[in-house]
């Protein structure tokens, strides 16, 4: 396990005040917020920031963290036995309410424990919270809903796909202790799925407490970027390069589709930038999306005498009246 330098993560000095830490966190959290950031590693950075802030904003955790001493981030590290004696968060009690334990590092978990189970202390419906199983009557709570992202290819949206997902989920062992359990789920992703849509897997979320039912698992679908196709909701766009004579005279040309190929007739007199719609050839569904072929014109190079002569002949034929810079 590597030591994590939380001060370095937030870019503050070890002597930084609570206010400095808060300001530094907010500034960086805005920068790396996965919904707005364009940084490639935004999501990972955002999680690291959350973890660092979780420790440094809490005077008690910060003091305990400081007590392990100063090390360089990335050094190998094992917490000394009994290092956390005397601090209140010891073990994996019901503290740290809003924190999603699954997103924190092993380093964090070895120091501060992970919450007994996802949502152990939270009432169904998200309302009030209760303590996790104090002496009195047994508590039956529905397990927490969990979320994960699944990356698929555009082709998968046309054909449907199977995905094997490995999830680390909090669960209870026989003694009722929270443990992290690794589960592999085989999920079939139905055809017609769109970017940003969620799949709900009933009962596959966090385990319930007592006789409470398990929560649901939500999978948010994201498409891998495709070198050729662009997706907009249900519609798919593809560039279709044409030779000048195909655009001018009309032609039948093959158009690539995410799940094959289709022949498209180009009407005579087509200009570059024109969009030809292939109705219902976008992402399948009810209604299905459309596929748009965006026409481009590629000129053959005037590298040989023959092509040069052909361009000369075209120039003569078009005459002085043809001026591409004149407004249409």
């Amino acid at each position: 396990m590597k030591f994590k330098d939380y001060y370095q993560t937030l870019g503050v000095a070890r002597e930084a005040s609570a206010d400095d830490i808060k300001h530094a966190y907010r500034k960086l959290a805005r920068k790396y917020h996965p919904d707005v950031s364009k940084e490639p590693d935004a999501e990972a950075r955002f999680k690291e920031l959350g973890e660092a802030y979780e420790v440094l904003k809490d005077p008690e955790k910060r003091a305990a963290y400081d007590a392990i001493g100063r090390r360089a981030g990335g050094d190998d590290f094992q917490p000394p036995p009994g290092w956390d004696a005397g601090y209140e968060f010891h073990g994996s009690g019901p503290g740290g309410e809003e924190v999603d334990p699954r997103q924190f590092s092993d380093f964090f978990e070895s120091l501060f424990g992970r919450r007994a189970a996802g949502g152990g202390g939270r009432a169904a419906g998200g309302g009030g919270r209760r303590g996790g199983g104090g002496g009195g009557a047994p508590i039956n709570l529905r397990g927490e809903d969990h979320h994960a992202k699944v990356l698929i290819d555009l082709q998968d949206a046309y054909t449907g796909a199977r995905r094997s997902l490995t999830l680390r989920m909090p669960a209870f062992d026989e003694q009722g202790h929270g443990v992290l359990q690794e589960r592999t789920l085989d999920v079939s992703i139905p055809r017609g799925i769109r970017q940003g849509q969620n799949l709900r897997l009933a009962g596959q979320g966090g385990p319930g407490l007592g006789s409470g039912p398990a929560g649901d698992l939500f999978l948010e679908i994201e498409f891998n970027p495709h070198p050729r196709f662009r997706v907009d909701g249900r519609d798919v766009y593809v560039d279709l390069p044409l030779a000048p004579w195909e655009a001018a005279l009309g032609a039948a040309v093959p158009v690539p589709m995410p799940d094959g190929e289709v022949e498209l007739s180009i009407p005579p007199g087509s200009a570059a930038g024109r969009k030809l719609r292939l109705k219902g050839k976008g992402i399948p569904g009810d209604p299905a999306g459309d596929l748009y072929a965006v026409l481009g014109i590629v000129l053959p190079p005037a590298g040989s005498d023959a092509t040069r002569q052909a361009y000369e002949a075209l120039k003569t034929a078009a005459g002085a009246g043809f001026n591409p810079r004149r407004a249409a």
Binding site: A124, G125, G126, G127, R142, E144, D145, S164, R183, T184, L185, D186, V187, S188, I189, P190, G192, I193, R194, Q197, N198, L199, R200, L201, A202, Q204, G215, D216, F218, G285
Partner: peptide, 23 residues
């Protein structure tokens, strides 16, 4: 390794109650 068959797509036809959305 579990095979999951009951997958619901949250498409335009699906609506959530307040309790479901909160959860």
């Amino acid at each position: 390794n579990e095979r999951i068959t009951s997958v619901q797509v949250l498409d335009d036809g699906v609506e959530l109650t307040l309790v479901e959305l909160c959860r």
